[in-house]
Nucleic acid binder design. Structure first.
Length: 323
DNA sequence: CAGTCGTGGAC
DNA sequence: TGTCCAAGACT
């Protein structure tokens, strides 16, 4: 266990002394909920957090950032080996920035969504050019990098730099939906109401906020999971609105499932797999073998080219981009 | 804002 | 061989 071990503050992060009566008419409900959640969740985190390489001090901000890119929509178990190889090969942003983007795509392997590799490479170039080779510390600076959205900017600022940000990923959204909202699942898309809840629950103290962010996310990943949740191991099950309501089934619109077989995504994946394995430019005829239907096949290949994942050469062959 | 974008493991 | 899901970003 290598989670940060700073003590949890024993006094409320803001406001009056413990046990002091609330001022009538002033809404303190959110604060009260928050304070009763922070200590048990953070204590649980410090006892049960996984020992992941990007949580070790030597990972640095670059390691945190690389892991966040790889973890976007991808399970930890599949990220681990690729992360280790990646950090061995490119221990600093400038090391990656020197390489052609195609090398990043190749090293990405079968993690999926290979545009993330392209964006991570682009972010490394931007960091090298604009930030002297160091991952920027500001949320706005992070947000300006390719491949970094609201979640990843907050995650890097919080996990790498200990800042106070609401870190709203799918795990945290589910945890909050259950504890606060009394729902099995959050809405399909992140709502303003969810952001408001996340901000209201954020500890006032910076260091506590950072551990709360990591802890609430880990709770969603290990205990408060989408299926087969284990309320018996949850440190705040006694305060969970969903559990207290008898764990009602999901009400709203069905969570739209991802179809895959037969889609352009599948064809793109097959095409790019060939390009990744190839050491020399690949003739069109070889690519043609990955998919029967010519119209969809051509559309998929065009898509890869326009995304910058494949480079067409004058002789009709294709390769990963050298730029 | 709804669609698009990979991959593989669990059931 | 099907469904659901996994630390989202971008258009």
């Amino acid at each position: 266990m290598t989670a940060p071990t700073k003590p949890v503050p024993t006094s409320p992060p803001s406001g009056s002394a413990p046990g002091a009566p609330r001022t009538p008419g002033v809404p303190h409900a959110a604060e009260a909920i928050a304070e009763s959640l922070h200590i048990p969740v953070i204590a649980w985190f410090e006892a049960h957090a996984r020992d992941l390489p990007w949580r070790r001090p030597e990972a640095g901000a670059w390691g945190v950032m690389v892991s966040e890119f790889m973890l976007q929509q991808t399970p930890v178990s599949r990220v681990l080996p690729v992360y280790e190889q990646w950090m061995d090969r490119w221990p600093r942003p400038a090391d990656l920035a020197k390489e052609p983007s195609g090398e990043a795509v190749r090293a990405w392997g079968r993690l999926g969504y290979p545009r993330r590799a392209l964006r991570l490479h682009g972010a490394a170039v931007a960091i090298t050019e604009r930030h002297g080779g160091d991952v920027p510390t500001g949320h706005a600076q992070l947000l300006a990098l390719p491949g970094i959205g609201e979640y990843t900017a907050a995650a890097v600022a919080s996990f790498a730099y200990g800042q106070r940000h609401a870190v709203l990923d799918t795990n945290v959204r589910r945890v909050f939906a259950r504890i606060v909202g009394g729902n099995r699942y959050p809405p399909n898309a992140t709502t303003a109401a969810e952001r408001k809840v996340a901000r209201a629950l954020l500890p006032a103290d910076e260091s506590t906020a950072a551990r709360w962010a990591a802890g609430s996310m880990e709770l969603g990943a290990l205990v408060c999971t989408a299926k087969n949740e284990d309320c018996g191991r949850c440190p705040v099950s006694n305060q969970c609105a969903w559990r207290l309501a008898g764990k009602p089934e999901h009400q709203g619109p069905p969570r739209r499932g991802q179809t895959y077989a037969g889609t352009d995504r599948q064809v793109r994946g097959k095409l790019l797999a060939v390009l990744r394995e190839a050491v020399a430019p690949v003739p069109q005829a070889v690519l043609d073998r990955v998919w029967e239907e010519p119209v969809q096949r051509a559309r998929a290949l065009d898509g890869l080219v326009s995304d910058g994942l494949a480079e067409p050469l004058a002789d009709g062959t294709y390769r990963l981009p050298l730029t």
